[in-house]
Computed example of a mutant assay.
Amino acid sequence: MVPTVRAAGPADLAPVADLLRAARPHLVVTPELLAWQATGKPAERFGMLVAEAGDGIAGVARTGLLYESAEPGLGFVNLVVHPERRGRGVGSALLAAAEKRLAGLGVRRAYARVVDEPAPLAFAERRGYRAGRRSVILGLDLAAALPAAPDPPAGVRLGTAADLVDPRPLYEADLAAAADEPGDVGRDETGFSDWRAAYWDRPDLDRALSTVATADGVVVAFSLALTDGRDRYLSGMTGTRSGWRGRGLARSVKHASLRAARSAGFRWASTINDAGNDAMRAVNAWFGYRPVAAEWRHLRTLPK
């Protein structure tokens, strides 16, 4: 059966969330998050396409602009096909429709996240996508014992994002920490209003579980927690300002966040590391995280 591709609607949010969880168990995804993605970041021009084949949704493509980069014409297409529906033309139909949408938005170069498995990698290569950086997905059973909590440096106070009256200090710390973070696309065009819409206001950000370390009123390190409200926890970003690195702050803020997550009833934690980020991978290994999957960032220049 030839799949039918169409724009996703409100009734599709729950089945799409189920599909994404089935295909990417490490993801934290809910229907509420998908609904917010459609409207919560206007500059991203997010759009979600679904493919129907037989008795329901067989795949989804999430598309939009990489608006945080100063380079114009960048976009993304992240394609997921249900494990039981692969090899039936679903991915091809979705990708063609997704690239057409991106071209209509003025995208010239499309990025895609591709699972590090032979079939998805071959699919991407056949369609002109070339591999860039590799990321490793790590998992941690929160029922296991955490290492002893490290003491923060003198003069540094640990709190939560919920304690912040104004999130601007966290915004400033996030941009400072991300300035030299390994990756294919920079975040050099993120203003405060865009950051607030894209990160602070997202429905899966658990501010009570997100830890911030402050010194003299400045956020010097942080660990953001994304949750599904049930049992899954994902580290959105753990970062330290460059002048404060090497003092154990990444371990301190992440330890406080993970401990709070376990107390709140979350049972599984995941995080995503660039394969070249040795410092953060060492921090996560110290906690007991273990690799559970991997993916590659691919890039294709779309035809004119």
Score class of each variant (00 low, 15 high):
2 V>Q: 05
8 A>H: 01
8 A>F: 00
9 G>D: 10
10 P>R: 06
28 V>D: 05
30 T>H: 10
31 P>T: 09
33 L>I: 08
34 L>Q: 07
38 A>E: 13
38 A>P: 04
39 T>D: 10
42 P>I: 15
44 E>A: 15
46 F>A: 15
46 F>L: 14
47 G>T: 09
53 A>H: 12
55 D>W: 11
56 G>Q: 09
57 I>K: 06
57 I>T: 14
61 A>N: 08
65 L>M: 09
68 E>L: 02
68 E>Y: 12
75 G>F: 05
75 G>Q: 13
75 G>M: 15
77 V>A: 10
78 N>W: 11
85 R>K: 11
87 G>D: 10
87 G>V: 06
90 V>W: 09
91 G>A: 10
91 G>V: 06
92 S>Y: 07
92 S>W: 04
101 R>L: 12
104 G>H: 03
114 V>I: 13
116 D>W: 07
116 D>H: 08
117 E>P: 04
118 P>A: 03
124 A>E: 03
131 A>Y: 06
131 A>G: 04
132 G>W: 11
133 R>M: 09
133 R>H: 11
137 I>N: 01
138 L>D: 02
141 D>A: 14
143 A>W: 04
150 P>L: 05
151 D>A: 14
154 A>P: 06
162 A>F: 04
170 L>H: 01
178 A>C: 01
184 D>R: 09
185 V>G: 07
186 G>F: 04
188 D>W: 08
191 G>Q: 05
197 A>R: 00
198 A>D: 02
198 A>F: 00
203 P>T: 09
207 R>C: 08
208 A>S: 12
209 L>I: 12
211 T>P: 06
216 D>W: 03
223 S>G: 12
224 L>K: 03
226 L>H: 15
228 D>P: 07
231 D>M: 11
236 G>W: 12
236 G>L: 10
241 R>V: 07
247 R>G: 00
254 K>R: 12
254 K>C: 04
260 A>M: 04
263 S>R: 15
267 R>C: 09
270 S>I: 02
270 S>V: 06
270 S>C: 10
271 T>K: 04
273 N>T: 06
273 N>V: 04
274 D>S: 14
280 M>D: 14
283 V>D: 01
285 A>V: 05
286 W>C: 03
287 F>E: 11
288 G>D: 03
296 W>E: 01
298 H>Q: 04
298 H>D: 12
299 L>H: 01
299 L>F: 07
300 R>V: 08
300 R>Y: 08
301 T>W: 01
301 T>C: 13
301 T>N: 06
303 P>D: 15
304 K>G: 10
